[in-house]
Simulated assay, not measured.
Amino acid sequence: MELQIKDLNKKRVGDLSRDGRTYTCKKGNCITIITANPDGTLDIKFEIIPAA
Rank of each mutant, 00 (worst) to 15 (best):
K11M: 04
K11G: 01
K11I: 04
K11S: 05
R12P: 00
R12G: 02
R12K: 13
R12Y: 00
R12W: 02
V13M: 07
V13W: 06
V13A: 10
V13E: 12
V13F: 08
V13S: 02
G14Y: 03
G14L: 01
D15Q: 14
D15W: 13
D15P: 04
D15G: 09
D15C: 12
L16P: 07
L16I: 13
L16C: 07
S17M: 10
R18W: 14
R18F: 15
R18V: 15
R18L: 15
R18C: 14
D19T: 09
D19L: 09
G20D: 08
G20H: 15
G20R: 11
R21E: 02
R21S: 11
R21V: 03
T22F: 01
T22H: 02
T22M: 06
T22S: 02
T22V: 10
T22P: 00
Y23A: 08
Y23S: 07
Y23C: 02
Y23W: 08
T24N: 03
T24M: 06
T24Q: 03
C25L: 07
C25E: 10
C25Y: 05
C25P: 00
K26C: 11
K26P: 00
K27T: 09
G28Q: 10
G28S: 08
G28L: 11
G28V: 11
N29Y: 09
N29I: 12
N29W: 08
N29Q: 12
N29F: 08
N29C: 05
C30Y: 10
C30T: 14
C30V: 15
C30F: 11
I31Y: 02
I31H: 02
T32S: 06
T32W: 04
T32G: 01
T32Q: 10
I33V: 14
I33P: 00
I33R: 07
I33Q: 01
I33D: 00
I34C: 05
I34K: 05
I34M: 09
T35F: 01
T35Q: 10
A36N: 03
A36S: 06
A36L: 12
N37K: 15
N37A: 11
N37Q: 15
P38E: 08
P38H: 07
P38K: 13
D39W: 11
D39R: 14
D39Q: 14
D39K: 14
G40Q: 12
G40P: 09
G40E: 13
G40I: 06
G40W: 12
G40T: 12
G40F: 15
T41Y: 09
T41L: 06
T41Q: 11
T41H: 13
L42H: 09
L42I: 04
L42A: 05
L42M: 11
D43I: 06
D43S: 09
D43T: 11
